[in-house]
């Protein structure tokens, strides 16, 4: 539930005028959640998350602080990174983004994050759907949208997710590529199995 709320707030944040996308990543460089309504490809997200996780890890080693913020300005864009425990939130935006609106959206997002940190550790991980979407994105790239909508229409329980994966596999096999379908479905089923 909290991950869903975090995703919803991340989506809201990414819809702000001037924001191109937002990525939540862990210190291993894995993309946990993302919302990129305009610009970021799967490859860009993955490379960014890896590079930024490495930067935060290195900086916290140099400076022994894990509560740092970074703000990079380029001639054609801006990247904010907010260090959080065990990861970071990255926001890709235009140079002209409204800082006050961004602050308000970030404040709401971090309130949800703090709430989620209070959750018991043994609650189920609701990020499976996001990870499934990420697999579809990685393997199918620009053709992933239909598969993602199938996954999103499934309920959170395992049987429904497995049904959705089977549907997605058939669709991919028929309209995109057989090998990609097999590879994608296998990774998705492994993920669902691991998340039990």
């Amino acid at each position: 539930m909290k991950m869903d709320q975090m995703q919803a707030h991340l989506d809201r944040l990414a819809l702000l005028d001037g924001v191109q996308g937002a990525i939540l990543f862990d210190l291993q460089g894995k993309v946990l959640l993302y919302s990129t309504p305009m610009a970021l490809s799967a490859e860009q997200r993955i490379v960014l998350a890896l590079a930024l996780a490495q930067s935060l890890t290195d900086l916290s080693t140099i400076q022994t602080s894990d509560s740092m913020d970074l703000d990079f300005f380029f001639s054609q864009g801006r990247l904010l990174i907010k260090g959080i425990p065990q990861g970071g939130l990255c926001i890709v935006c235009d140079r002209q983004v409204n800082n006050s609106l961004l602050n308000i959206a970030l404040e709401a997002w971090f309130n949800v994050l703090q709430e989620s940190e209070k959750q018991p550790a043994n609650e189920p991980r609701p990020s499976v759907l996001n990870e499934l979407k990420q697999i579809a994105d990685e393997i199918l790239g620009e053709h992933a949208s239909k598969v993602i909508s199938i996954l999103e229409s499934a309920d959170a329980d395992e049987a429904d997710l497995l049904d959705a994966i089977t549907q997605a596999e058939k669709l991919t096999r028929l309209f995109i590529d057989k090998d990609q379908a097999v590879r994608m479905a296998q990774r998705m089923r492994d993920l669902v199995e691991q998340s039990r």
Binding site: Q44, V47, L48, A51, L52, F72, F74, S75, Q76, G77, R78, L79, V92
Partner: peptide, 9 residues
């Protein structure tokens, strides 16, 4: 970062 995002200088 600049290279990944094509943000130029």
């Amino acid at each position: 970062i600049g290279a990944v995002l094509n943000f130029k200088d």
